[in-house]
Measured scan of single mutants.
Amino acid sequence: MAMNGTITTWFKDKGFGFIKDENGDNRYFHVIKVANPDLIKKDAAVTFEPTTNNKGLSAYAVKVVPL
Rank of each mutant, 00 (worst) to 15 (best):
W10H: 02
Y60H: 15
K55L: 12
P37T: 05
N26V: 14
K20C: 14
K20P: 00
L67Y: 13
V34C: 11
A45P: 11
Y28D: 00
K14G: 06
T6N: 08
G5V: 02
I7M: 01
D13V: 09
D38K: 11
F11H: 07
I19Y: 02
K20D: 04
N4V: 11
Y60E: 15
F16Q: 02
K42G: 04
D43F: 14
D13Q: 10
Y60V: 15
D38L: 10
S58Q: 11
Y28Q: 03
E49L: 15
V46I: 05
N36R: 06
K14A: 09
K14Q: 09
G5P: 00
A35C: 15
I7G: 00
T47Q: 09
G24E: 04
A44R: 09
V62T: 01
L67A: 14
V62P: 01
K12V: 09
G24Y: 03
G5I: 02
D43K: 09
K63Q: 11
G24I: 01
D38Q: 12
D43W: 15
T52W: 11
I7H: 00
L39G: 06
D38A: 12
T8W: 08
A45M: 12
F16Y: 14
N53Y: 08
I32L: 15
G5W: 02
V62F: 02
K14N: 06
V65S: 08
K33C: 15
A45S: 11
I19C: 02
K41P: 02
D38N: 11
V34H: 03
K63M: 12
K20H: 12
I40A: 04
Y28L: 05
A44G: 05
A59E: 02
P50L: 04
I40P: 01
D38P: 07
N23Q: 08
D43A: 09
N4T: 14
A59M: 04
T8F: 07
I40F: 05
V34Q: 03
K14E: 07
F29I: 03
Y28F: 13
H30D: 12
P50N: 02
P37G: 04
K12R: 09
L67E: 14
W10I: 04
D38V: 08
F18G: 01
K33M: 15
S58C: 11
G24K: 04
A2M: 13
A35F: 14
K14C: 10
D43N: 14
G17D: 00
A44P: 00
G24N: 06
T47W: 07
Y60C: 14
A59Y: 03
K41C: 11
A45V: 11
L67G: 13
N36K: 05
G24W: 03
L39N: 08
V46L: 02
P50T: 04
D21P: 01
M1D: 10
G15H: 07
F29Y: 03
K55V: 10
G17T: 01
T9A: 15
D25I: 06
P37A: 07
A59G: 04
F18C: 07
V31M: 09
V31G: 05
V64K: 00
P66N: 11
V34W: 03
G17Y: 02
T47G: 02
I32N: 15
A45H: 14
R27M: 02
M1N: 13
T51F: 13
K42N: 06
V62M: 03
G56H: 07
A35D: 11
P66G: 12
P37L: 05
N26Q: 12
F16P: 00
T9L: 14
S58T: 11
A45L: 12
I7Y: 01
K42H: 08
E49I: 15
A45C: 13
A59D: 03
N36M: 05
D25M: 09
G17H: 01
M3F: 06
T52R: 13
D25A: 08
D13P: 05
V46G: 01
F16G: 01
N53K: 07
L67F: 13
M1F: 10
D21S: 03
D13T: 11
F18I: 09
T9Y: 13
K55H: 14
T8P: 02
G17S: 00
K20W: 08
A2F: 12
P37D: 03
K42W: 06
K14D: 06
I7V: 08
A2G: 10
G56R: 12
Y60R: 15
W10V: 04
N54G: 12
K42P: 08
D43L: 10
T52F: 12
I7F: 01
A35Y: 13
V62A: 01
M1I: 13
A2Y: 12
V65G: 06
D21A: 04
N36P: 02
L57N: 05
N53T: 15
N26D: 10
D43C: 15
V64F: 04
G24H: 05
K33P: 03
M3Y: 06
F11S: 04
T9C: 14
H30C: 10
D21N: 00
T51D: 10
V64G: 02
M1S: 15
V46N: 01
K20T: 14
V64L: 05
L67N: 13
I40G: 01
T8C: 11
T9N: 12
K33V: 15
V64N: 01
F18A: 02
A2E: 13
T51V: 14
P37S: 06
T52I: 09
T52N: 10
I32T: 15
V31W: 10
V62G: 00
A44K: 05
V65Y: 10
T51Y: 14
N26R: 13
N53E: 07
F29Q: 00
H30Q: 09
I19P: 00
V64M: 04
K63T: 13
D38H: 13
T6L: 08
R27C: 03
Y28R: 03
D21M: 02
N23I: 06
A61N: 15
I19N: 00
K33S: 15
G24D: 05
N53Q: 07
K12F: 07
G56L: 08
F16S: 03
T9S: 14
W10F: 11
T9W: 13
V31T: 07
L67Q: 13
N26K: 13
N23A: 08
R27I: 05
D38E: 14
H30M: 06
D43P: 03
L67H: 13
A59T: 06
G56I: 10
N36Y: 05
S58K: 04
G17A: 02
A2V: 15
K12M: 07
K41M: 10
K41T: 10
P37K: 07
E22A: 09
P66H: 11
N23D: 05
N36H: 06
G5A: 03
P37V: 06
D43I: 04
A44E: 05
N23F: 10
I19A: 00
T47R: 09
F18M: 05
E49F: 15
K33G: 14
T47M: 09
P50Q: 04
K55Q: 10
A59H: 02
K41S: 09
P66Q: 13
W10N: 01
D21E: 01
P66R: 10
K33I: 12
L67P: 13
T51C: 14
P37M: 05
F29R: 00
M3I: 07
N53I: 07
D43Q: 09
N53W: 08
D21T: 03
K33L: 13
N23H: 11
N36W: 05
K42Q: 10
K20N: 07
K42A: 07
P37F: 04
K20Q: 09
F29C: 02
K12Q: 09
A61F: 10
Y60P: 02
I7N: 01
I19V: 04
Y60S: 15
N26W: 12
W10T: 01
L67I: 12
S58D: 04
A59W: 03
N4W: 13
E22N: 07
N23P: 00
G17E: 01
A59K: 01
A44C: 09
F16I: 05
F18S: 04
G5N: 01
F29M: 02
K55I: 10
T52V: 12
E22C: 11
M1Q: 11
I40Y: 04
N4A: 09
N23E: 06
D21H: 02
A2K: 14
A44Y: 04
F48L: 03
L67S: 13
V65T: 09
F48Y: 02
K42D: 04
G17P: 00
T9M: 14
N54R: 14
F11M: 06
I32R: 15
A61D: 14
G24L: 04
F48C: 02
T6F: 11
G24F: 04
A2I: 14
T47E: 08
A44W: 04
T6K: 11
K42R: 11
I32K: 15
V62E: 01
Y28N: 04
A59P: 01
E49V: 15
G15R: 07
T9G: 09
L39Y: 10
F11D: 06
P50S: 04
N36G: 03
K33W: 15
A35R: 10
R27F: 07
V62Y: 01
D43T: 07
V62R: 00
T8V: 14
G5H: 01
E49W: 15
K12S: 11
T47F: 07
G15F: 06
D13A: 11
G24T: 03
Y28P: 01
S58R: 05
F16V: 04
F11L: 07
E22L: 07
I7A: 00
F48W: 01
F18K: 03
K55F: 14
V65F: 10
F11P: 02
K12P: 14
N23R: 10
D13H: 12
N23L: 09
L57W: 03
G17N: 00
D13F: 09
M1G: 13
F48D: 01
I32S: 15
E22G: 05
E22W: 07
P37C: 06
Y28H: 06
K41D: 06
K55M: 12
K63E: 09
